[in-house]
């Protein structure tokens, strides 16, 4: 029985170039998304001020105010999330890495709960700003409720899809990490 001990023939310079490109690409993508959030938050606040100045309906004004708050929260949450996923450290002890991996792939975490707030504010914003688009209902309160419920249903569908994606892709990773950790620590 023989085994060969050869270092795989790898072009290090080519690899580094590829890594640099990926680093740059990830940086641009995340910056772009971050800036979208940071632009929309003050932009909607400006819309809110314009509406206030022009004496638009109070419901629309409040709606745009809630949009602005929602984008601000998303920008803050996304900034922290982005830093966490960007900096997975493989140089930590194995048990620590497994623990962090299991945490990272939890479906329900504190940060998930935090994301409910901006989603809720966005729902209120939609309900208030877009309630006049609901046809065939004369009562304003009823239109607000319908708009809120419809938007919340859409959010719910989004969460449902997110759950299915988590179940298919990330739950196996989490289960695998927990199994390995259990074996190491028993």
């Amino acid at each position: 029985m023989t085994t060969t001990i050869n270092t795989p023939n790898l072009d290090l310079n080519q690899l580094i170039e590829g890594l640099r490109r990926e680093d740059d690409r990830n940086q641009h993508l995340t910056n772009r998304f971050k800036w979208i959030m940071w632009v929309f938050a003050p932009l909607y606040f400006i819309f809110f001020l314009i509406m206030l100045y022009e004496g638009e309906s109070i419901l629309k004004e409040l709606g745009f105010f809630f949009f602005s708050v929602s984008f601000l929260f998303f920008a803050l949450i996304f900034r922290n999330l982005n830093n966490e996923y960007k900096t997975v450290d493989y140089g930590i002890p194995v048990t620590e890495m497994l623990r962090k991996a299991a945490q990272r792939y939890e479906i329900w975490q504190t940060k998930t709960a935090k994301a409910m707030f901006p989603a809720f504010f966005a729902a209120i914003g939609v309900a208030l700003a877009c309630q006049d688009m609901i046809p065939n209902i004369d009562d304003t309160t009823a239109r607000i409720i319908v708009a809120f419920v419809v938007y919340s249903l859409m959010l719910g569908i989004g969460f449902g899809v997110g759950y299915l994606i988590w179940r298919k892709r990330q739950k196996p990773l989490r289960d695998h990490a927990l199994r390995l950790l259990e074996e190491l620590e028993k």
Partner: peptide
């Protein structure tokens, strides 16, 4: 497979280098 693993280890060294 060994080549893939070797390359992936190098990639993770690069990614973790700033944190060392």
């Amino acid at each position: 497979d060994r080549k893939d693993l070797y390359q992936e280890i190098l990639v993770n060294i690069w990614k973790s280098l700033d944190k060392f």
